[in-house]
Design a protein around this nucleic acid. Sequence first.
DNA 1: TCTGGGGTCCTAGGACCC
DNA 2: TCTGGGGTCCTAGGACCC
Length: 436
Amino acid sequence: MSFTQPNSPSKWALVDCNSFFASCETLFRPDLKDKPVVVLSSNDGCIVAANRKAKQLGIKMFGPYFEAQKILKTHGAAVFSSNFALYADMSRRVNSTLLEFSPHVEVYSIDECFINLSGLASSKELQTLAEEMKKRVELYTAIPVCVGVGPTKVLAKLANHLAKNNKEYKGVCIIDKADFYHYEKSLKQTAVEDIWGIGRKSAPKLRALGLHSAWDFCHYHNEKLIQKLLTKTGAMIQQELKGIECIAEDFCDQKKKQIMCSRSFEKNVTAKEGLQAILANFVMEASEKLRNQQSLVAGIMVYIRTSHFQSGIQYFNQGFVKLDEPTQDTRKILKAVYKVLDQIFKEGIDYKKAGVILCDIVDQASFQPTLFDVGNFERELVLMEVMDKINAKEGAGTIKIGNCNNQFKKSHKKISKVLLTRLIGVSFQKLVSREN
DNA sequence: TCTGGGGTCCTAGGACCC
DNA sequence: TCTGGGGTCCTAGGACCC
């Protein structure tokens, strides 16, 4: 988030899919309509989505599955392992429906979009449009959504929260300062912990100042104290509640300053080769994200750890490596990651989790390779572009680098060597070995 | 409510230097 | 080394999100 100048009155819509993963899973299962449904995280460790029925049972989001297992079973709940390919596909369908309303759709997360509606003037127009959005998304995708509209992103979020939790809104809530009575009422009925960006640590700090609702917070006079207690972010949220835009217009599309890929393993891994294979997957994933935003990386962090919940030896170690030159080349990043692994790896440990973090991210456009390296750098760009294109077309993991032995991805579409050679004009293996 | 997943950003405070 | 100022860089940990 970065500051922007307050400008002409804006309107933002926030469209949020209801219990998104659970909704996706029940699309083709009308028999589950009135049953509790939950979706589990990648290793079935915790609950990452729950439909209304499941929430009514007191199911905690992001809580461990084993704790809820009994109650879910008693009530005949449907339990799904997550299927991210399906969710990503449904997310694209929702987004493309929303693009029919405005070209300015900013994807905030897999189940949420901000839409810039600044051209529309009246509350009535906005109400009609928001209702139409909801109707059309539900008609085209069968995913239920709620729509909140406000003059800032924080107020749009707040409106969405009201739309979702108060039946009388029927899934659509418009906050417009021109309707001051409703604006005041909306902020007064929202508790500080329900404001976007105010989490479990900040809320008690506000309450200690006697600020219990969004309205109290919004009108608190001592802005310096807010900045001190809740940092820059808190100060921005307070302004946004007043209707003053502080969050940059394109903040969803801003380039990441760091890219992380980490996961817990289904089974413990002890051998270094096992960790190498897993880290190779992380590097593939992270470096593709890096290239998608046209960036280069200059510093890489790797960590490996045992499970918090096992008895026996606990081990955590991490290492950082600075590259001689920023790169976006998977092979170079992987080489660096392996170097760090050599430094932090200890024999005889049951590892449960590992991660790769690309830090020191720089813009590709602003990087000038030395005259000597220009050719190499450009060849790498082309090679990586070809690889990404094939993976996008033929399925993730079609072309892999290093000894990826992916325990996370269930299946990969294979591509024949002949087709590959035809696609890039020269044997990929040859290219890889030549570059190394 | 004490966080069994994954990801991003911010900042306080330490290390180091002049 | 019972140390006084001030700047920069780095990193671990905090906080938030879905």
